[in-house]
C-alpha cells in the first residue's frame, strides 16, 4: 500500500491511496482511505474534514461504488501516476491486516 500520511481522526491509521471500483481504466478514480477507521478524503488535502462512508459497504463519496468490495484495491504505482498523486506518497507498507494474510 502506498500511503500519503497518517490519520488525524483516529491517530493511528495509515492513509493509503485506494482505487474505487466504480469506474475502470483511465476514468477510475482514487481516494485517500484510512486503513484503521475508514475515514475518506477525495483529494490529497487531508487537512480538510474527511467523509465517513456508511458501513458496511463504504460507498465511494464520488460514485457510491464500494471501497471495500469487488474490484476496489490499494492503488498500484501505475495508478498513482495516472492520478498524478505520486508527489504526495511518503512510503509503501503493509495496510492493517494485510501483513497477516
Amino acid at each position: 500500500m502506498f500511503y500519503v500520511g497518517f490519520c488525524a481522526v483516529c491517530g493511528e491509521g495509515t492513509l493509503g491511496i485506494r482505487m474505487c471500483a466504480g469506474q475502470k481504466g483511465e476514468r477510475q478514480h482514487g481516494v485517500v482511505l484510512c486503513d484503521e477507521c475508514d475515514a475518506v478524503w477525495t483529494t490529497l488535502d487531508t487537512s480538510q474534514a474527511p467523509v465517513f462512508p456508511e458501513q458496511p459497504d463504504l460507498p465511494c463519496p464520488i460514485c457510491s461504488a464500494s471501497l471495500v468490495r469487488h474490484a476496489a484495491h490499494w492503488a498500484t504505482a501505475e495508478e498513482i501516476d495516472r492520478l498524478q498523486w505520486r508527489h504526495a506518497v511518503i512510503g509503501e507498507g503493509w495496510a492493517l491486516g494485510d501483513e497477516l494474510d
Binding site: E12, T14, G93, W94, A95, L96, L100
Partner: peptide
Amino acid sequence: QPGRPGSH
C-alpha cells in the same frame, strides 16, 4: 504487525 507503517 511489525511491517505496518507508524504505530500499531
